[in-house]
Each structure stands twice: as structure tokens, then as C-alpha cells.
Amino acid sequence: MSFGDPNNPYGQPPQQPPAGNPGYGYPQQPGVPQQGYGYPSAPPVSQPYGGGPVLTQMPGITRAAQILLAVIAAAHLVIAAAYGKALADWDKTMLEAGITGDAEAERYADLGKGVVVFFLGLAAVFAVIGLVLLLQYAKGGNTVRVCSIVYASFAIVSGIFSLALYGLGLVIMIVAVLTIVFAAKRTSAEWFRRPRY
């Protein structure tokens, strides 16, 4: 077999460097870039400690998570308004149902009113928390991302309780799942972990 044969399993022998080319341990000639690792051939560092480039603009997927968070907060404002309307009409509804006058029935009606007040307050607090998280997306750290994921997880539960409210609960659950997915993406994590000077 000859070394020029294309069917040779051993291939062509390695080429020897020319005699004038310095090898390992010899000083490098000026103007010739040095091969290998280390300071002379290392790429320029674009941020402290050798990380990737610094993000200056919010990535699209993170912006989508922020918008979906706004939808969840707005939906909870609608839910709070619905509970507020039910609370405003409560006494009139109980009077029309004929519950007034019976002490036992009034006690249960007051218990129901307390439940409505509780859910009204819960929906209002949930909307405020969503608004606070929403406003922190531009300057917040990784805690904002983690809190957004937890917030969206609780929104799934609140969506289950809101299913009877004209399908708003289903919308909340779908948007909450998408928020979790978008906030958990690596791009979003990089945005919230970016260095701030």
C-alpha cells in the first residue's frame, strides 16, 4: 500500500513542520499569533468574570411573561369587581330570597357575606401583587422571576375557583401556565441575573 492510496485506512502520514518554524519552548516570532490557551490568545472579556455579553434590552420571551403577568393581574381586578358588585347587592338579594327575619338563615347569610368579603380582599391583594411584580421586570433581580413563577402557580389555583365566572378562570389558568413557561426559560433567567452597574 502506498500513502497516496485513497483507500488506505491509515491515511496520509502527518506533515513535519519546516525546519525554520520554532516548536514548543522556543520564543515566538513577532507578528505571528501564538496558538493555544492562555493570556495572549484569550478572547476579550465582555463582562466581569468572563461571562457572556451584558443584556441591555429585555428579551421578547421575558416581555411576553411580563405582559401575561399583567393579564393575570387585570383578571383579578375584574374578579374583585365582580365580588364587589355581589357584595353591594347582597342585602337586596337576601331580602328578595326571603332570608330576613329568620335568625338561623341570617346567620348563614352573614357567613356567606363574609366569604364574599374574603374572596374580594384576596382578589384585590392578588391584583396588587401582580402589579408590583409587573413593575419590577425592568430592574428586578432573580427574585422577581421566582416570585412570578410562584404567583402564576397560585393564579392557576385561583383560576379553578373562578371557572364559573364567564370562563375567566380558564383564561387565567392558560395565561398562568404560559407565564410559568416563559419566566422559567433560560433567556428570562439570564435577563434577571444580568449584572447591574
Rank of each mutant, 00 (worst) to 15 (best):
G52Q: 13
A80W: 08
G36A: 06
I72T: 02
A64Q: 07
H76S: 05
T93G: 03
P43A: 11
Q66W: 11
A65Q: 01
M94I: 06
P59T: 06
P40T: 07
L87T: 06
P48H: 01
A73D: 06
Q66K: 15
T93N: 13
V45W: 06
D89C: 04
L55F: 05
I61M: 11
Q47Y: 10
G38Y: 01
T56S: 08
P59D: 02
V78P: 03
L55G: 01
P48A: 01
M58C: 00
Y39D: 07
A73V: 06
Y37A: 03
A70L: 03
G60K: 03
L68Y: 04
Y39I: 10
A80V: 08
L68K: 10
A75F: 06
V45G: 09
A82L: 14
M58I: 01
L87E: 09
I61C: 12
A86E: 15
V71W: 07
Q66M: 11
I61V: 15
S41P: 05
L77I: 11
A64C: 02
V78L: 15
I67V: 14
A82C: 08
G36H: 04
Q35C: 08
S41W: 06
V78G: 12
H76K: 02
G84P: 01
Q35D: 10
G51Y: 11
K92G: 07
W90K: 08
D89K: 08
A65S: 14
L77D: 10
Y37D: 08
I67S: 11
M58V: 00
G36M: 02
T56Q: 13
A64P: 01
L87G: 04
D89E: 13
G52I: 04
T93F: 05
G60Q: 02
A64T: 13
D89R: 09
K92I: 03
K85A: 13
V45A: 12
G52A: 05
D89V: 02
G51V: 02
P44G: 09
Q57V: 14
Q47M: 05
S46C: 08
Y83V: 04
I79D: 05
G38F: 01
A42R: 15
L69T: 15
A74F: 05
L55A: 06
P53N: 12
T56M: 01
P40Y: 12
T93M: 10
H76F: 15
Q57H: 13
G36V: 00
Y37H: 09
Y49L: 02
G36W: 03
Y37E: 04
P44V: 13
P59M: 04
V45C: 10
Q57T: 15
H76T: 02
L77P: 02
A82D: 05
L87Q: 08
I61G: 06
A88N: 10
Q47C: 10
K85C: 05
P53R: 10
L95F: 07
S41F: 07
A86W: 08
S46P: 07
A70V: 04
L77E: 14
I79M: 09
T62D: 01
G50T: 04
R63W: 08
D89S: 12
G50C: 08
G51A: 05
W90T: 07
G51I: 01
A80M: 12
L68R: 11
A70S: 15
P59K: 01
P59W: 00
S46Y: 11
H76C: 10
G50W: 03
A42T: 12
A65C: 09
A86C: 09
Q66E: 14
